[in-house]
Amino acid sequence: MSPRFLCLPGYLQSGKLFAEKSSGLRKSLTKKKFELLYIDPPVVIKSKEELPFKLSEDEVEANSKWNSIVEQGINRAWWKHSDALGYEGFQESLHYLTKYIKENGPFDGIIGFSQGAAMASIMTNTISRLLDQEFKIAIFFSGFVFTDVENPNDDKTSLNYDIKDIAEYSSKVTIVHGYEEYYLPGASTLNTKIINIYGSEDAAVPAIRSEYLTSIYNGKATVEEYVHDGGHYLPNKKQFLNPIVESVVNVFEEKASL
Rank of each mutant, 00 (worst) to 15 (best):
Y100E: 01
Y161R: 03
L131C: 01
G112C: 09
K172T: 06
T192Y: 15
A117R: 04
A118N: 05
Y169K: 01
G199Q: 09
G143W: 15
K156W: 14
G116A: 07
A203N: 15
E201W: 08
A204P: 02
D202E: 13
G178I: 02
S158T: 11
F146G: 00
E201N: 14
Q91Y: 12
A203D: 12
K102Y: 12
S142A: 15
P185E: 13
P152E: 11
E150M: 07
I197K: 07
L94V: 05
I197A: 04
S142M: 10
A138H: 15
L94F: 12
T174S: 07
L184Y: 10
R209V: 07
I139N: 06
Y161W: 08
A117E: 09
E168L: 11
Q115N: 12
F141E: 03
H177T: 02
K99D: 15
T214S: 03
M119Y: 09
N151M: 06
S114T: 09
G186Q: 13
Y96M: 05
V176S: 14
S93R: 04
L131P: 01
F113N: 03
F107D: 00
A138I: 04
P185Y: 12
V145C: 07
A167L: 08
I208R: 10
N160D: 13
N151C: 04
T157P: 06
F146Q: 04
Q133E: 15
S171R: 14
F144C: 00
L184M: 10
A187S: 13
A207Q: 08
Y96K: 04
D162G: 01
I195G: 03
K99M: 09
K136M: 01
L184A: 04
I127S: 02
V205F: 14
Y169N: 00
L213Q: 11
Q91I: 08
Q91C: 08
I195N: 01
G89R: 05
L94Y: 05
K99F: 08
M123D: 02
Y169T: 02
L190N: 04
A207K: 11
T147H: 15
S158H: 13
S210G: 12
P106I: 05
T98D: 06
D154E: 14
A138S: 15
R129G: 00
I194D: 12
M119S: 04
L159A: 05
M123P: 06
K172L: 08
I166C: 02
Q115V: 13
N160V: 03
I110C: 00
D148R: 07
N125I: 06
